[in-house]
Design a protein around this nucleic acid. Structure first.
Lengths: 239, 239
DNA sequence: TTCCAGTTCCCCATAAATAGCGAGGTCCGG
DNA sequence: CCGGACCTCGCTATTTATGGGGAACTGGAA
């Protein structure tokens, strides 16, 4: 059974920390409190940069990136399209690559059981909070039943902190577009051509061009496609 | 003080429900358990469709959409760029439009205090879970201090259920792109022109064109911009 | 009141993307 | 072993987007 007071204390400490190392420390403490083999938090930001902390063996992490397992790992693939936390057993391990990957992971000491919680940030950041352990199915099911809710909350707190650190790095973003520029970008993202967009907005094609160029300039984009991609990435328009 | 047993029972009921009405019922119960004026859950999916349930007066909801307040509401604007839950007091109410909006909301019986939790789905869905009440700052601060964590968890459960219903409606999506197609889309989203992408991938411009057209076809897109927008929206590429 | 950001309009030239045709290779699973 | 999905290359013509100039009206902020 988990010591709730200690858990609260760890979360409080996590909330107060000012450095990235605080995440790693919290993970080590959490592993002890929950009494499991591994806890990992890993995220990818809108620029494709990655950050991870956790208790997986360094050799496994190196091996993982070396083999480019990011494209094979059913945990990543499965969670990327999903919202709810998921037990590893419910993922798709049918392909040969996936089974080989799992066997490889086992040999590096990753648990045979796992529970991964996807978390998403406002700019398309994607993070995964994973608890992993070596035990039988029944024991693991009971562990998740007992602690699933806490793990969701912890994943949320981790992500909040990680995004806080990221925000420090890039504040220059988030310049907004004018209403007309948003209209234009939105319609372009919906697949309309310039003449169609101009007609839809009841303005001349030239005026539309001014908006597109203005938006491109504001977003620091090279062309329309880039501008739309950035607008979506920044949450300025809804796809 | 909140009755935890009752809260757990409501969440369990929410998890089991098979209909959208289950969300509305849960909200009514939650409002009673927490003893506050309003609870609202509102989401927008990747196609721009909206769904909402909650306890705001219908007249306010009509008034809101009639006045097109979605573009003015500081709660929406603020939460869309944020990850962590936020107290309405900490939002930006400096503009005249915002203050006018707030006054208007008050006149319709919306609470003067509020706490909104943004939640995001895998395909760019954005939801907001809001608790609102009429009381002084200190009382509200204590309420949030007491129940903030539970509210986060509840928001998570609501979103999980809402996405479940949405998934039923559109399973046809999520066809994947080939590795080369992903490379091409990714570089295009990064602002490279076709010649640049072709050079970066060390392939001929023609071959690149085949990928782009293939991706466009798979995504049902009208042009490159549309395809990139969809690829991002579907989480097939990372911006 | 002045000034700036936003909205709106026009022409012309060039660069880029799209559309049409076809063709040969690998690699995987039924 | 064969079909299908994937990767690779070529040609030409048309449509579309982008860039370079300039100009006027609006409304809210300093």
């Amino acid at each position: 059974m988990v010591n709730r007071a200690e858990l609260d204390q760890i979360l409080a400490g996590l909330e107060k920390t000012e450095e990235l190392e605080g995440l790693q420390k919290a993970i080590v403490s959490l592993r002890r409190v929950f009494g499991i083999d591994h806890i990992v938090y890993h995220w990818v930001d809108s620029a494709g940069e990655q950050y991870g902390c956790g208790t997986y063996p360094l050799k496994w992490i190196d091996h993982y990136s070396e083999k480019n397992y990011l494209r094979v790992d059913p945990v990543i693939i499965g969670c990327y399209q999903r919202f709810h936390p998921i037990d590893w057993k419910r993922l798709d391990w049918s392909s040969k690559q996936a089974r080989q990957f799992f066997a490889d992971a086992q040999s590096f000491g990753v648990g045979n059981q796992g529970y991964s919680i996807p978390v998403r940030g406002p700019q398309g950041q994607f993070a995964l909070f994973t608890a992993s352990h070596n035990c039988d199915d029944a024991t693991w099911a009971e562990f998740i039943e007992q602690n699933g809710r806490d793990l969701i909350l912890i994943a949320h707190y981790f992500n909040r902190k990680a995004l806080e650190f990221e925000a420090d790095k890039k504040m220059e973003q988030s310049r907004s577009l004018s209403p007309r520029e948003i209209d234009a970008m939105t319609l372009l993202a919906m697949g309309y051509s310039r003449p169609q967009v101009a007609h839809a907005l009841s303005i001349s094609e030239h005026t539309l061009r001014v908006y597109i160029e203005s938006a491109r300039f504001k977003l620091g984009a090279m062309n329309t496609t880039h501008a739309v991609a950035r607008a979506i990435g920044c949450g300025l328009i809804v796809v």
